[in-house]
């Protein structure tokens, strides 16, 4: 399986990354090398092997549904690049 520059452009869109033509070319080459190396895993028969989703034996943790103090508006917006009227400001979502 080898990937093309078109695949790289598609994946960049999925990842919300804007790549320049040079970055696209380098990444195509490097991702192919890494994925080719990853093909090594196909030497192993994993039929019937359970995937590891968690290394320890843990179960879901639930807490009591009680109201607790939450972040203040001031704290929540402390690092906001832009804010207005106590809200994060973003450009138009619908164009």
């Amino acid at each position: 399986m080898s990937i093309t520059i078109k695949d790289v452009q598609h994946v960049a869109r999925l990842a919300r990354l804007q790549l320049g033509p040079e970055e696209e070319a380098v990444l195509t080459e490097q991702m192919n090398a890494i994925l080719q190396y990853a093909e090594k895993l196909n030497e192993l028969d994993t039929e019937g092997v359970q995937p590891t989703t968690h290394v320890l034996h843990v179960s879901n943790v639930m807490r009591e549904d009680v109201v607790k103090e939450s972040l203040s508006l001031e704290d929540a917006l402390l690092n906001a690049p832009e804010e207005e009227d106590g809200q994060f400001k973003v450009p138009a979502v619908m164009e």
Partner: peptide, 29 residues
């Protein structure tokens, strides 16, 4: 960027079983 790209690819439609799931099984081994 390289790792985000690689990870996004490995999780993307059509490749999940071949890469991510396979790797999780080898992790068990």
């Amino acid at each position: 960027k390289r790792r985000i790209m690689l990870g996004t690819y490995a999780l993307s439609s059509g490749y999940y079983d071949a890469y991510y799931l396979k790797a999780q099984k080898v992790r068990t081994l």
